[in-house]
């Protein structure tokens, strides 16, 4: 298991605080659910912006934060313009800092670093290689 530095721990805590603050202005009307592509398919509150807001407000880190297309449809239907995607990104960043990111994402980044392809296969067609910091 990756050792987490104190700086990362503090940074993650700050990010969760900021994510939770973004939802301070959410009035929980639920209108964000109407246009959320993920909610409309999976139909569980946790996938909606309001559901994620409930988690982030309670500083709960769950992999469901990665189940969001960041398409901003929820922000458009939010009468108060809550910056949901910003909050979700902060939540994800905090999780990654604490070594709680998605295994699939870590593998993809590893592949890009190693081979230049997210799938890990060396490009035979001479396609442009991807880079990751």
């Amino acid at each position: 298991m990756k050792k987490i530095s104190n700086t990362d721990r503090i940074e993650a805590g700050n990010l969760m605080e900021e994510a939770s603050e973004i939802f301070d202005s959410c009035v929980q009307c639920g209108l964000c659910k109407g246009r959320c592509g993920v909610f409309r398919v999976l139909r569980e509150e946790g996938f909606s912006a309001r559901g994620k807001g409930a988690l982030l407000s309670g500083k709960i880190m769950d992999k469901i934060l990665f189940e969001c297309n960041l398409c901003r449809a929820c922000e458009e239907s939010c009468p108060l313009g809550v910056k949901v995607c910003e909050a979700v990104l902060k939540g994800r960043e905090a999780m990654v800092l604490l070594g709680r990111g998605l295994k699939e994402n870590e593998k993809m980044i590893g592949n890009v670093r190693k081979t230049g392809s997210p799938f890990g296969a060396k490009s035979s067609t001479g396609e442009e290689k991807l880079f990751c910091c």
């Binding site: 139909r43 569980e44 946790g46 994620k52 409930a54 469901i64």
Partner: peptide
């Protein structure tokens, strides 16, 4: 349902807070 996710079912647009033992989505 995963315990973490129950939180999103513990309120509605009234903003009252409650406690869910579990959630089922048949």
């Amino acid at each position: 349902m995963r315990k973490n996710l129950l939180k999103s079912y513990e309120s509605d647009a009234s903003r009252l807070k409650g406690k869910a033992l579990d959630v089922f989505c048949p």
